[in-house]
């Protein structure tokens, strides 16, 4: 099953490489990885999506917790949560396709954020599935480039991942 694990990480040099290294060293897989500082400059938040059965996920969370730089973590998929990813897509936009791109973007509530006579750059947010569907919808028109941030997520309700 697919899991979204969010980690509060010491904002220290080498911390990220320890997390990433752990995945390759122990043969765990990383589907997406997203990392940025938090409101507390000493902490980064890292979100990783991974796939594995319960035993593997248990090992992943245990080994992550063992890393000295990992302050706290949560497997968001264990409860209700919000999952978001941002994607920028460049599509060929010539002639009739210009309208087609606009229409499709509207259906997905995506925005065109940059325009040239031949290219539209579209921004879309949503969960991974929505982004995949958008790529499929745009594919026939002609995708030139895709940049995805990887999944970020947060628990619904009062639950917090904080110190």
């Amino acid at each position: 099953m697919r899991h979204i694990i969010s980690i509060l990480l010491e904002n220290e040099p080498g911390a990220l490489s320890r997390v990433v290294g752990l995945f390759s060293q122990r043969n765990f897989n990383i589907e997406t990885l997203n990392v940025a500082p938090t409101e507390d400059p000493s902490l980064s938040r890292l979100t990783v999506t991974t796939v594995g059965d319960d035993r593997v996920i248990e090992q992943i969370t245990k080994h992550l917790n063992k890393l000295v730089d990992v302050v706290k973590l949560v497997d968001l998929t264990e409860g209700n949560h919000i999952e978001r990813e941002l994607m920028l897509v460049k599509v060929k936009a010539l002639g009739a396709a210009r309208d087609e791109v606009k229409r499709t973007a509207d259906i997905f509530r995506a925005q065109v954020v940059d325009v040239t006579p031949s290219v539209y750059t579209v921004q879309i947010t949503g969960d991974g599935g929505k982004l995949d569907a958008f790529i499929q919808a745009m594919a026939p028109i002609g995708i030139l480039e895709v940049a995805r941030t990887g999944v970020s997520g947060i628990a619904r309700g009062d639950k917090l991942l904080s110190l």
Partner: peptide, 14 residues
């Protein structure tokens, strides 16, 4: 050396 030893240490510092 921090990189080389990363998988075989409990932790490392620079």
């Amino acid at each position: 050396i921090v990189g080389v030893t990363r998988p075989v240490v409990k932790h490392s510092f620079s």
